[in-house]
Computed example of a mutant assay.
Amino acid sequence: MPAPPHWQSGTAQLLPRLIARRTRGPLFLTDRKAPAGTPTLDVCPETGRATALLPSG
């Protein structure tokens, strides 16, 4: 399993700007479609791309 992300203060200050107007969906996505069998919670329902953070399962 990949190591959890480590957020530094600069990232923490930018996150509110990134999520300010979001109403749904994952914030970080991979640049490709999720492979078959990926849990539903780890796939963006609009794009079909996998989430780029830790898996839910």
Results as ranks from 00 to 15, higher is better:
1 M>A: 14
1 M>Q: 04
3 A>E: 12
3 A>K: 06
4 P>W: 07
4 P>T: 01
4 P>I: 11
5 P>V: 03
5 P>C: 04
5 P>F: 07
6 H>N: 09
7 W>Y: 12
7 W>E: 08
9 S>T: 14
9 S>Y: 14
11 T>Y: 09
11 T>P: 00
14 L>E: 13
15 L>I: 10
16 P>T: 00
17 R>Q: 04
20 A>D: 01
20 A>Y: 10
21 R>H: 10
22 R>E: 08
23 T>V: 07
23 T>H: 08
24 R>Y: 08
27 L>C: 01
28 F>C: 06
28 F>L: 08
31 D>A: 08
31 D>R: 06
31 D>Q: 11
31 D>P: 02
32 R>P: 00
35 P>I: 04
36 A>W: 05
37 G>S: 04
37 G>E: 07
38 T>E: 03
39 P>N: 06
39 P>D: 06
42 D>I: 01
43 V>Y: 09
44 C>R: 00
44 C>E: 04
45 P>T: 14
45 P>M: 14
46 E>P: 01
47 T>S: 12
47 T>Q: 13
49 R>W: 14
51 T>V: 15
51 T>A: 12
51 T>P: 02
52 A>V: 10
53 L>M: 12
54 L>G: 13
54 L>M: 15
54 L>S: 13
55 P>W: 13
56 S>R: 04
56 S>E: 08
